[in-house]
Amino acid sequence: MQFIANGFIYRKSNSIIHRLDPRIKLLISIQLFTLALLVSDLYNLLVIFTAITIFSLLGRITQRLLRTMIFATGFSALILIINYFAGYSLIYSIQIALRFISIVCSTSLFFLVTSPDELEYVLRWFRLPRDLVFAFVTSVRFVPVILMDTLQIMDAQKSRGLELEKGNPIKRIKKFVPILVPLIINEVIRSGELAEAMESRGYGISKNPTSLYSLKLSNFDIIVMISTIIAFTSIILLVY
């Protein structure tokens, strides 16, 4: 079953970036994102771009970030061409495209190095309502499970002669009924069982549940935080 979940975005690693406090990772990501939005000259964009590359190298996620980048590049090539033909200068069009890539990559960077577990801690730290945080947690937790269900249902129906590869589009949509119905029913049953299990383990009995770990900034976290903030503000000051 692992091979399905492995295709999922986050992967365990022990890199220097992975070990940062999730709030710091979020901060870095937001700073890069904001810069990408604010700056517009080629020179500064390249600085941001370099920063993203350094972070991804340190986090050993370059390969997967590259995939995001290729996707974004395809998209931004389109932006570039449209801009160029709309009469803007080439430099300006390149800037717009580069900006787009930076925005996408800075967001993706965060999700590639932050486990859902850490994300939950961040959400809790923001004091979001517990139900909301838990809804987020379970929906991410059950993505691989639902995927497995879907595959098993498809196997079962294919074994009963359901042809999924052939036929015109309208007929194909109709063919998804035998897959969607069991899937929905299975997930309804699952959510019922989930609710029972949550209830019997005391979900909701306390307004202030405690937590196994609390987020604590290490010295290294603080150094990273301060240095990135300094870099961030100096770029902003330089630009304006």
Binding site: S115, P116, D117, E120, F134, V137, T138, V140, R141, L194, A197, M198, R201, G202, Y203, G204, I205, S206, P209, T210, S211, L212
Partner: peptide, 16 residues
């Protein structure tokens, strides 16, 4: 419910 075994064991205890 949770993303790791230890966090899941903690679930009920946190509720208490």
């Amino acid at each position: 419910f949770m993303f790791s075994v230890e966090r899941d064991i903690a679930f009920g205890l946190e509720n208490l």
